[in-house]
Design a protein around this nucleic acid. Structure first.
Lengths: 136, 136
DNA sequence: CTACGGATTCCAGTCGAGTGGAAGGTCAAG
DNA sequence: CTTGACCTTCCACTCGACTGGAATCCGTAG
């Protein structure tokens, strides 16, 4: 299968595939006589795994390190699990941050709604955002 | 107040302040006779607002558009509220994504723990990540 | 006077994950 | 035989939010 088809099957562009290859995330495939990249079904699996892993928020370099574990096979699965667990922890941290931000913003929005819209006329102030009581 | 003091008061570097000015997020302040930027207390408020807004996940260009609303004063607060509400929606989307990712990853980790670590010996496979049943 | 901490400008680089485009080679259809 | 879709390489650029560093100037303490 050529690069375009692989891309279509996995939902990425040919350019992205070449990019992944360039950073070592995908192995160099065999080539046809005319120099075209020629992929097997393994490539589909691998590329889909990359996409899946990426969807969970792993960076490409984290994914690369997981895939490296696969290929060396030397280190145990515990390396992989450690990476995953670490990542779950960072997701939790991100979620906490977002929750905080959300609370802040809804507070802000609520305040905005309570204000008389007609009173927002001072060209140098928007009450929603420049209220002193709100400013840290 | 000079740039360093302003930075200290707001928890940013002088470099960041100049950067904000360069992208139009902060107005050009008056200068001392010797060319130093000379800020008033307004700058502290504005910069702190920027930091606060940023902490909630707004990008600098979103913040810029909110601050623009302030300075033109033409459009009503509803513009600001709309932006905020839109941002809250995007936070919710992010949180859903993270929750999905988290579920995926913990599944993966659980599977990893259930596997006999000693069985992870095939140099070309890490069972945690290359199990066909898991692959989309 | 000199040293030192801050200030100034401007240009360049970082990270992550690609994307754009030029210049050219290949293959199947009409 | 030409057209058009697809492939190749390579180099440069994007976005966001800074950060680093060079060269130079200002202000004050010793």
């Amino acid at each position: 299968m050529k690069i375009g088809e692989l891309g279509d099957r996995c939902g990425v562009t040919a350019k992205t595939i070449r990019y992944y290859e360039s950073i070592g995330l995908l192995d160099e495939p065999t080539r046809t006589a005319s120099g075209y990249r020629d992929y097997g079904d393994d490539a589909v699996k691998r590329l889909r795994f990359i996409r899946d892993a990426q969807a969970t928020g792993l960076t490409l370099s984290e994914i690369a390190s997981v895939l490296e574990l696969k290929s060396t096979g030397e280190r145990s699965c515990s390396h992989t699990t450690a990476l995953i667990e670490q990542h779950v922890a960072s997701i939790d941290a991100q979620m906490r941050q977002l929750a905080d931000a959300r609370r802040e913003l809804t507070l802000l929005a609520d305040r905005a709604k309570r204000l008389d819209p007609a009173s927002c006329t001072d060209p140098n102030r928007c009450q929603v955002i420049s209220d002193e009581r709100h400013m840290a």
